[in-house]
Computed example of a mutant assay.
Amino acid sequence: MDLGGSGNDSVVTRFVLLGLTETPARRPILFVIFLLAYVATVGGNLSTLAAILVEPKLHSPMYFFLGNLSLLDVGCVSVIVPAMLRHFTSNSRSIPYRACLSQLFFFHLLAGADCFLLTVMAYDRYLAICQPLAYSTRMSWGIQQALVGMSCAFSFTNALTQTVALSALNFCGPNVINHFYCDLPQLFQLSCSSVHLNEQLLFVAAVFMGVAPLVLISMSYVYVVAAVLRIRSAEGRMKAFSTCSSHLIVVGIFYGTGVFSYMRLGSVESSDKDKGIGILNTVISPMLNPLIYSLRNPDVQGALQRVFMGRQLSK
């Protein structure tokens, strides 16, 4: 796949990312803030993954999917934040055409897999609560692997399609992106070719990877809530709601920011609101996910304590 920017009519070989601020005095402060956020995100998600691997109690489908979500979050934040940190410390804020498209591809690959994986996790909760007798059969180890593999395959197809379609556009100037990373809406604004097909492809992707998963998640939780309300024990209801509430919070943050980012293609110019939503989507959400899941789950908390304190796992 040729991602070069030197097509027949294209003259732009580098883009300039305006970033979060054009004031040099603010850059060291922002560098420290986002460096700490990056360390916290990577450390939190890898700690969650380590806890899942070493704690036998967490060797279940729900935590298998959570471990994969943690890996995706580490990858997603690593695609965006290190480049942002480099721009904070450099006078040059340019990014080569190929690097820009590579960043876009990997971001959509990882974020798209997140979309499908969150849907799979909702289906897992539906089976566990609404069909507990069939749970072990319908969520076997092979099915778990297949669901994760399908999520990655669908996301890869979309990311590749969007990137190839974008690489067919001509960029003859200007080359200034009013954002801190390369993404489709901002690049559409810079193209001197027609982006009608690209916008249609993005709309289809938004329906397939945004609307459809959100509908399936909502339907799953309608059945889950109905089943939980039939539980006579107040303690049982609280436990069931507790296992679902963390996932619902993550879904709300992820889809709330995603809808704002990709359903505004009619907007002519990027604004600071786009940057703020971008921070929520690419930095804050991956950083909060391990906190959301661990704070409400005593099993994860206990496993994390054993990981950090180096104690032997009790059988």
Rank of each mutant, 00 (worst) to 15 (best):
S78P: 00
T89I: 10
V251E: 10
A159L: 11
R98A: 09
V224Y: 02
V12E: 06
V148H: 06
I29H: 02
K273S: 11
L147R: 12
T282Y: 03
T161L: 15
S261G: 00
S102H: 05
H87A: 13
N178W: 06
V283K: 01
H179M: 08
S294W: 02
P298T: 15
D114H: 14
A205G: 14
A234M: 13
F105E: 05
A206I: 01
V228P: 00
G149L: 10
L30H: 04
R138P: 00
I33K: 02
F34N: 05
G142S: 08
P61S: 05
T48A: 13
H59L: 12
F254N: 06
R98T: 13
S70E: 02
F203R: 10
S140P: 02
Y38S: 01
N198P: 00
L36A: 14
F106M: 13
I249G: 03
L169S: 09
L184P: 00
G43T: 10
I231F: 06
C76M: 14
S102Y: 02
C76D: 09
T282C: 13
L133T: 12
A99S: 13
T243H: 14
G310I: 04
N175L: 00
S155L: 08
A303V: 07
P174K: 05
Q162S: 11
L184F: 10
R14V: 09
A240R: 03
R296T: 15
L85G: 04
G142D: 07
P286F: 07
A40F: 11
C130A: 12
V74G: 04
Q305L: 13
V120Y: 03
A37M: 15
P82S: 08
T157H: 08
S220N: 12
L313D: 03
N281K: 05
A227E: 13
